[in-house]
């Protein structure tokens, strides 16, 4: 009957509320900024999780997130204790979590680059300095990667502002955010955007794997180098997972030498890093107003 249904509804609703708050055992959780195709990320970081679990003797879990900010928030909220951040997201995260530290970076991350790429139908030819390209770039459509990306947003925006002394959306007719580097590549390749900027490692790796139609898209300019990706860990992990945990984690990351895993990043190896290494990134971010 009608009313008895209503009462069942009420009762079950209350029960569901109570059941929605379950807690789980203490697992070490890490994440990574979603800078590339998700399938690749999951594959790569599950490998890392297995490796770390073996080395550290705790349960290690990787969780994929949908945005750079989500990675930073999860780190800040202590739902993850370690993250593979970009330069900018790492600076943001460490500002928000006092005591957190950059502990390792890729060999290539000391001198990272951004590639500006263009669809060949634009006729833009590669140049050694960005200001030579002013006429060709003006009025084109342009895509960054994620809004929170260092190589896909921060550095390209910095150089555009620095060289042309104007904002990207006044130089270009249309400015978009593709979401990640792989997508930037695909969108420029397909002509959805005429010009784009992306992480040079993603470009090189896709090129090596034969995944780029070089008749459709080419690199037109390379930025000067800057520090980028790093592993950042929370300061309170020793309290939670035992003394010396941070040290053990650092060593495990630095000792990672499985070629297949390294290749998936792609990095040739990991080397020590410190918060100070990323001072230039912080300054640049403040310069263009991404950081207060």
């Amino acid at each position: 009957m009608a009313i008895s249904n209503l009462r069942k509804w009420l009762a079950t609703g209350l029960l569901s509320l109570a059941a929605a708050t379950t807690v789980q055992a203490d697992t070490f959780v890490f994440t990574a900024i979603p800078d590339e195709d998700e399938t690749k990320l999951v594959e790569r970081f599950r490998g890392v999780a297995d490796y770390l679990q073996e080395q550290l003797d705790v349960e290690v879990r990787y969780i994929p997130v949908k945005s750079y900010a989500a990675a930073v928030s999860a780190f800040r909220n202590n739902q993850v204790q370690l993250a593979w951040f970009g330069g900018l997201s790492g600076v943001q995260a460490r500002r928000l979590v006092p005591g957190s530290e950059a502990i390792a970076q890729g060999v290539e991350d000391e001198a990272f680059e951004t590639y500006f790429i263009a669809n060949t139908s634009t006729g833009i030819q590669p140049a050694d300095s960005l200001d030579e390209l002013e006429d060709e770039l003006r009025g084109k459509t342009f895509t960054f990667g994620s809004k929170g990306s260092t190589s896909g947003r921060l550095m390209p925006e910095f150089y555009i502002r620095d060289v042309f002394n104007e904002a990207p959306d006044s130089l270009f007719s249309r400015v978009g955010f593709s979401g990640n580097h792989t997508r930037t590549l695909r969108l420029v390749e397909a002509g959805t955007y005429e010009v784009g900027a992306l992480n040079f490692q993603v470009w090189e790796k896709e090129l090596e794997n034969g995944n780029i139609d070089t008749d459709a898209v080419q690199v037109i300019w390379r930025t000067p180098t800057y520090p980028d990706y790093q592993w950042t860990i929370r300061g309170d992990v020793d309290e939670r997972f035992g003394d010396g945990f941070k040290q053990k984690m650092t060593e495990a990351l630095l000792n990672l030498d499985d070629p297949a895993l390294l290749e998936s990043f792609p990095r040739s190896g990991f080397i020590p890093a410190s918060n100070d290494d990323y001072e230039p990134i912080r300054a640049t971010a403040e310069n263009i107003g991404i950081l207060d």
């Binding site: 569901s16 379950t22 807690v23 789980q24 909220n77 202590n78 993850v80």
Partner: peptide, 15 residues
């Protein structure tokens, strides 16, 4: 309605 809360997944604990 009774079963649904048990299929939401664990997610991560709230701090």
């Amino acid at each position: 309605v009774l079963a649904a809360p048990f299929f939401l997944g664990d997610g991560l604990p709230i701090v």
